[in-house]
Nucleic acid binder design. Structure first.
Lengths: 206, 206
DNA sequence: ATGAACTTGTTAATTGATTAACAAAAAATA
DNA sequence: TATTTTTTGTTAATCAATTAACAAGTTCAT
């Protein structure tokens, strides 16, 4: 299938989680305007996304939930599941790990985490071990880990980034490591709440 | 000044943090392409943003850092500072609070937090108290708090949201509360890492 | 002094995302 | 049976964001 627009992919991930919950209500069908209002979107936008996804609904009942979920699965779960890791098992890392683990439908798996703090190394959370950062290259290659979530702040973060990229990481989600340098072709999503706070503050006052 | 585009506001917030750090290197000037490469942007985009900001640079040396920072301050810090709060003082809430507090230039202040867990209530972190959720309406009105960061997951989150809006909250940043319903005019930013993971996984494999 | 090498500032062009508009299908109602 | 209602699916139009293009200013080297 043709490559979906960035924003559509983002929304499709949200549709899935909402639908998984909706399914437990034993409602077999859903209308585009229902899905839209659950996520504060425009119904047209929902229909357009689903059209691009290649699925289709019913003139009278809307979209069949199971069919929709299957269609989303096929698009987002490629191939089988992507491996990710968390760099920094402090308070933030721990809460993210639990949050991700709580999801019944997340196609991204976390099987190992890393830290530089001896107190964290060799502990486990929900059965997932925390390894010494020095072992990262070895384990990332072995488990084919592709995404790294950065939850730590240290002065030498750039050296860590470079090692991770070298080991095969292709995407970073950066919570608080500050500005980092990455080569072209590597994905990066900045997740600094301070930016969001300032943006929202501006919007509220203007 | 005219209202700035959403994306420009977001980037301006990032410029400020990068510039604050850059300033400590005692470099008095910065070029648009330097600022751009620090944040993986296009230099044209940077110049355009700064133009919209109403500031101007120098044909030979680029932009004067102190002048730029002052200009950003004037735009983002309106009026004086916005009050925010964190709903849920678990691991995530605590790490966010410390992260926000560590910023020397964040124009958004947090002076109180809330929880429903008796073990958290009446504790303080870095001098910032955690209050019982039942006191939220009173304190939000008194301190004119406008933004709520949601870091908790409970079944009755919607009731909490409604109370917060009634008390005067105008914007929510939602980490893990799941889909919530908010009326028009209230800002909402979804910060669920699972969406980002799935989106990135899709991009890596396509 | 003159031209080469940089840079900013701004308009125009392009690309991407959202929203509007409406035909087509199907059932419900009169 | 004809009409109304409701919804999907898709194209066209609008709106927003990014990128390209280039004039104009400034310094440096010759």
């Amino acid at each position: 299938m043709a490559k979906l627009p960035k924003k559509t992919v983002e929304r499709i991930s949200q549709y899935r989680r909402v639908l998984a919950k909706y399914q437990t209500l034993s409602e077999p069908f859903i209308f585009s305007h229902d899905l839209a209002s659950l996520l504060h979107l425009n119904p047209v936008q929902v229909r357009r996304d689903l059209m691009l996804l290649g699925t289709s609904g019913n003139y009278r009942n809307g979209y069949k939930v199971t069919k929709l979920l299957q269609s989303i699965d096929e698009t987002l779960t490629i191939p089988k599941s992507t491996q990710a890791t968390i760099i920094g098992m402090g308070r933030l890392g721990e809460s993210l790990l639990k949050h991700i683990g709580s999801s019944p439908v997340c196609p991204v798996m976390i099987n190992s985490t890393f830290d530089i703090n001896p107190k964290k190394i060799n502990t486990t959370i929900r059965g997932i071990p925390c390894y010494d950062m020095t072992r990262a290259p070895e384990i990332i290659k072995e488990q084919k880990i592709k995404i790294a979530i950065l939850t730590l702040y240290t002065e030498d973060i750039q050296a860590i980034i470079d090692i991770l990229i070298d080991a095969g990481i292709e995407g970073f989600i950066n919570y608080m490591a500050g500005p980092i340098k990455i080569p072209k072709g590597i994905y990066l999503k900045e997740y600094d709440i301070r930016t969001t706070l300032e943006e929202m503050s501006y919007n509220i006052h203007n």
